[in-house]
Amino acid sequence: MTKLSQGYPGKTFFEYGGDIVGKWLSALISLFFIGHFVMIGAFEARIMAEVIGFFLLEGTPLWAIIMTTIWVTFYAIKDGMGSIARLAEIIFPITVIIFLTIVFLSSSIFELDNLRPVLGKGIMPVFKGTKATVLSFISAEVMVFLLAFMKKPEKGVKVVVVGLTISLVFYLIIVIFVIGTLSVDGVVTRTWPTLDLMRSFEIPGLIFERFETFLLVIWIMQLFATFSISYFTASLGLSQLFGKNISPVMFGLLPLMYLIAMTPKNLNHVFAFGDVVGRIAVILFGLVPIPLLLISKMKKKKAKT
């Protein structure tokens, strides 16, 4: 996706897609991309509402939390990509600090034996388990539009590799410490095992004794950031595709994302919805960009000759 966008500096896929596969097919692919960003945005809004409702605002209706989240996000992104970039700059160092705090505090109750035996049933269960991780890594598809806003797009590949590596390291360490502390049997019976990890220890005498509060803060911030990016990308795509101003498009997406977010009846349906979004993302952003890149290179090579 990044290499594809690097061939069209200053443009998003919604603008340069027609140069590769023609106007109508490009519009169809763009609508699928936009639909994905709408769904992932609605999913993030619903998950955020579930977490806030369960841990912080017990008894508050989901619709109230989701509506508030969507309107606050609209305010945050209405000025464009600069606001989202500054939001990410604020969130990242806070994430690192809280993450390191979690690792340090949980090391006192970590049991290495809970991780054994490694690959006790062979490698195949590991491959089967990767399906559940797809949703955690699908945010990389923002590169179909993000490269157009970069000052140095030639460093796009490096940015993606570094970004995914940081995410991979974070996830890997969290998984190791959660299983090492709660054990496999303990993890599979919990809905929010990472938060339960933070609840499993306390240090009396400190100002703060409920350390899961810190994790909730950063978790909600991360969800909000992901929702903001998805919301903005979907709005930008529709505005560029139909040649409209982005502000009315943002307003138009508000009720649509709210309705999608409210569709799942319970938390199990929410997780099932997330699995569907992840599978669709594999096809849309794992397979589709490859032929587009090949067609683009062939067309440019033909134009030179």
Rank of each mutant, 00 (worst) to 15 (best):
V126R: 01
F127A: 03
G129P: 08
T130Y: 05
T130Q: 02
K131V: 03
T133L: 09
V134T: 01
L135A: 11
F137E: 00
E141A: 07
V142D: 11
M143F: 02
L147C: 08
A148R: 06
A148M: 06
F149N: 03
K151T: 04
P153R: 02
P153H: 01
E154K: 12
G156I: 04
G156K: 01
K158V: 04
K158T: 02
T165C: 08
I166M: 07
S167W: 07
S167Q: 09
V169I: 15
F170K: 11
L172D: 09
I173G: 02
V175E: 05
V175P: 10
I176A: 00
V178T: 11
V178F: 14
G180F: 06
G180C: 12
L182Q: 03
V184T: 11
D185K: 06
D185L: 13
D185Q: 10
G186M: 00
G186R: 00
V187G: 04
R190F: 15
T191G: 11
W192A: 12
P193F: 13
T194A: 14
T194P: 12
L195Y: 04
D196S: 14
M198W: 13
M198C: 09
R199D: 06
R199K: 12
R199A: 09
S200Q: 06
G205E: 05
I207P: 02
R210F: 04
F211H: 09
L215T: 13
L216D: 09
L216K: 07
V217S: 12
V217Q: 09
I220H: 07
M221V: 10
M221F: 14
Q222A: 13
Q222P: 15
F224V: 06
F224I: 05
A225Y: 08
A225M: 10
T226I: 09
T226N: 03
S228R: 13
S230H: 10
Y231A: 05
F232Y: 14
T233D: 07
T233A: 06
T233W: 00
A234E: 00
S235V: 14
S239G: 10
L241E: 01
F242C: 03
G243Q: 03
K244R: 12
P248V: 07
G252C: 08
L254T: 08
P255E: 13
L256M: 01
Y258K: 04
L259E: 10
I260H: 02
I260W: 05
A261G: 01
M262L: 15
T263D: 13
K265F: 15
K265H: 10
N266V: 15
L267S: 06
